[in-house]
Lab assay of single mutants.
Amino acid sequence: NKFNKELGWATWEIFNLPNLNGVQVKAFIDSLRDDPSQSANLLAEAKKLNDAQA
């Protein structure tokens, strides 16, 4: 379904953000699993944090 596809894509993108540490990645992935409907918002937050830590 739509959420599974978005969840998978967001998970892959978060895993590939180079400036996040393992704890941050795990926290974002756990949040995605808790509420897949928020995948776009969580991915945006992860990208912002990644950019801030560059």
Rank of each mutant, 00 (worst) to 15 (best):
A10W: 13
L7V: 10
A27Y: 15
A40V: 10
W12Q: 07
E45W: 10
F3Y: 10
F15C: 14
K26P: 00
A10M: 10
I29N: 01
S31E: 08
A40Q: 11
I29A: 03
W12N: 06
V23C: 14
F28Q: 00
A46L: 03
W12M: 07
A52P: 01
D30H: 08
N16R: 07
W9E: 09
Q53L: 10
K48L: 08
W9P: 06
A44D: 08
G8F: 15
E13L: 14
K47A: 04
Q38R: 12
N41H: 12
N16D: 03
G8Q: 15
L43A: 03
N4H: 11
A27R: 12
Q24F: 02
A40H: 11
N19G: 03
N19K: 02
A44C: 12
I14E: 02
V23P: 11
L42K: 06
D30G: 06
L17G: 00
L49T: 03
Q24M: 03
P36L: 04
N50R: 01
N19S: 04
K47D: 01
S31F: 09
L17N: 00
D35R: 06
G22A: 13
E6M: 10
A27G: 07
A52T: 08
W12H: 07
N4L: 12
D51G: 05
K26W: 12
N19P: 00
Q24G: 01
G22S: 13
Q53N: 06
P18N: 05
N41D: 07
L20D: 00
L32M: 12
A44E: 14
K5G: 13
L49I: 09
F3G: 09
N21Q: 06
N19T: 02
N50M: 01
I14W: 03
K5D: 15
L49N: 02
Q24C: 03
N50A: 03
L42A: 03
I29M: 08
S39A: 14
I14R: 01
G8N: 13
A27M: 13
A54E: 07
F15D: 02
F15Y: 14
L7D: 07
L42D: 00
K47C: 06
G8L: 15
F15G: 03
E13I: 15
E13F: 15
G8P: 06
L43T: 03
K2C: 15
K47P: 01
R33C: 14
N16G: 05
K48S: 08
I29L: 13
W12T: 05
N50Q: 02
K48D: 04
K26L: 11
A52F: 08
Q53D: 02
N1K: 09
L32A: 03
F15H: 05
F3L: 12
A46C: 03
F28W: 02
L20T: 00
N16V: 04
D34W: 09
W9F: 08
L17D: 00
N16M: 10
N16L: 08
D30C: 14
D34G: 10
A10C: 12
L49K: 03
N21M: 08
N41T: 13
S31V: 06
V25F: 03
K47V: 07
N21F: 07
N21L: 11
N19Y: 14
L49G: 01
I29H: 02
Q38M: 08
L20F: 01
A54R: 07
N21T: 14
E13T: 09
G8Y: 15
G22M: 14
N1V: 07
P18K: 09
N41Y: 14
N1P: 11
L17Q: 02
K48A: 11
Q38P: 01
T11G: 07
Q24V: 02
D51K: 10
A44K: 10
W9C: 13
I14T: 02
E45D: 11
A52Q: 11
V25H: 03
F3N: 10
G8A: 15
K5R: 07
P18Q: 06
E45I: 13
R33D: 03
F28M: 02
D51F: 09
D51L: 11
V25M: 06
I14F: 05
N4K: 05
Q24T: 03
L20K: 00
D34L: 14
L17Y: 03
N16F: 05
P18V: 08
S31A: 14
K2L: 11
T11H: 06
S37Q: 07
K26H: 07
N21R: 07
E6Y: 10
E6Q: 06
G8H: 14
Q24E: 02
L49S: 02
D51S: 09
W9G: 05
L43V: 14
D51T: 09
L49V: 08
A10H: 06
S37V: 04
Q53E: 04
L7S: 06
N16P: 00
F15N: 06
L42N: 01
N16A: 07
E13N: 05
W12F: 09
L7Y: 11
A52S: 09
N19Q: 03
F15A: 09
A46E: 00
Q24S: 01
N19A: 06
W9A: 11
D30R: 14
F15W: 10
A27E: 08
W9N: 07
T11R: 09
W12D: 04
A52V: 10
K26A: 09
N16Y: 05
W12I: 05
S37P: 02
F3E: 11
F28A: 00
V23H: 12
F28V: 01
L43W: 05
K47I: 12
E13K: 13
E13Q: 13
L49W: 04
I29P: 00
A10T: 12
L7F: 11
P18I: 07
L43R: 03
N41V: 13
N1Y: 03
A46V: 02
N21Y: 08
A40S: 08
D34T: 10
P36M: 05
E45Y: 11
P36W: 06
L17S: 01
Q53T: 04
G22Q: 13
R33K: 10
N21D: 12
A10R: 04
T11L: 15
